[in-house]
Design a protein around this nucleic acid. Structure first.
Lengths: 211, 211
DNA sequence: GCCAAAGTGGACGGGGGCGTCCGTTATCGT
DNA sequence: ACGATAACGGACGCCCCCGTCCACTTTGGC
């Protein structure tokens, strides 16, 4: 876990670095990305300069702080793809992703890059979306996923899921679980379906064409 | 539309008042409630003092600016309740409400009172929720609405719907339409339902117990 | 036309976040 | 143990928003 850099950090430095990351993780999770840098510094018990020296920009900090979530995200889609029944895998991805995003408000914002337009998460997000696209294709073939499902629907779901976690604090994961279940109901193929209205390009939310 | 007050406003004053309201409506719709008071004043071509004299607080301004939407909201639920088929009325309410909220970002924030904890909208929201609760009850009786639907699900839907409208600008109503259709699918009673996870109290979002 | 009262907007002081500089302090190799 | 040097954090100047005060302008009744 520790970095091996040209100049390995001095002991106190790497100590502070770790405390900064902890503080960032905690505050990003509860307050979102908009939390002031100074507050992270304060919460970590360091001065603003130290924070800025270690992480010149908030993106740097966020990128580092969310590596765990990023890994978890990748693990989720891989696990979903590995599932023998694609529909089951698809549902699994939705459920776990919603929960993951419910646990950290900031991660969702970073993942959606609502924030600064370009973060290092873009590549990961595209990987996830591509994987899920393939999974969705297989799930359609089994007849369990509605045929008019589009990848943008999943992006929409993530954005919607974020909307649930505004101020609540507690009960967020519970809400997300129920939400995920409803979403799955909505995506499930069913005889009583009426066709869905056309998709809308969600602009900044899905920057790169995926397929 | 014009007010009849103890001292009817001078012509230039009521003129400015109207332009302020127009500016507020426009900016609240596109930017949300967080738009600076000064920018509203600038956009209306008046000084900050004028704005503050006419509307001492942002709530005052918002309350006045959103009367139209408020009326529309009430009209929607009344219309839905008047529908002979309760499920059809229920769907209608969802569709139109989502669209209404898609058209003004600020209105959603005000309606949810995400902002200052207490706005004059509380009463209207409670009226709407009560009405929809009754409608939902009837819709369950016809067997079209899933029996485990809870009123909080509707609040959740509104919060989720807000999540969709972050930066997009165009295509918001289209997205909301599709979202509404998916939500209706999710709420529809169906033989292939598995039971939903328990509801989560969405804390500040639904302040009063409705029943 | 005139003038009191209503109305206006520029200007002000306060507060908070931002990113950076620099004198002081702690670390670590010898 | 000691000094070179990495690391620290308080303090600074900048910008933006807030809400209010006040000298000037406009309105409208006579």
């Amino acid at each position: 876990m520790t970095d091996r850099l040209p100049h390995p950090l001095r002991s106190d430095a790497s100590d502070n670095r770790e405390r900064i990351l902890d503080a960032a993780r905690a505050l990003f999770a509860t307050e979102g990305l908009k939390v002031p840098m100074r507050e992270i510094a304060r919460h970590a018990g360091v001065g603003p300069a130290t924070l800025y020296r270690r992480f010149p920009t908030k993106q740097t900090l966020a990128t580092e702080a969310f590596t765990d979530e990023m890994r978890a995200c990748r693990a989720i889609v891989d696990e979903g793809r590995a599932e023998p029944d694609p529909w089951r895998g698809f549902c699994l991805v939705i459920e776990r992703t919603c929960e993951l995003h419910a646990r950290s408000r900031g991660f969702t914002e970073a993942f959606m890059s609502t924030f600064p337009d370009a973060m290092d998460f873009v590549a990961e997000r595209e990987y996830a979306l591509r994987s899920i696209a393939e999974l969705a294709h297989r799930a359609k073939d089994t007849g369990h996923l509605r045929p008019d499902f589009v990848l943008d629907d999943l992006v929409m779901m993530l954005m919607a899921n974020r909307g649930i976690h505004t101020a609540s604090k507690a009960g967020r994961v519970a809400a997300s679980r129920r939400f995920a279940a409803l979403v799955i109901q909505a995506f499930q193929a069913s005889p009583q379906h009426s066709p869905l209205p056309p998709v809308a390009r969600l602009a900044s939310a899905a920057p790169g064409k995926i397929t």
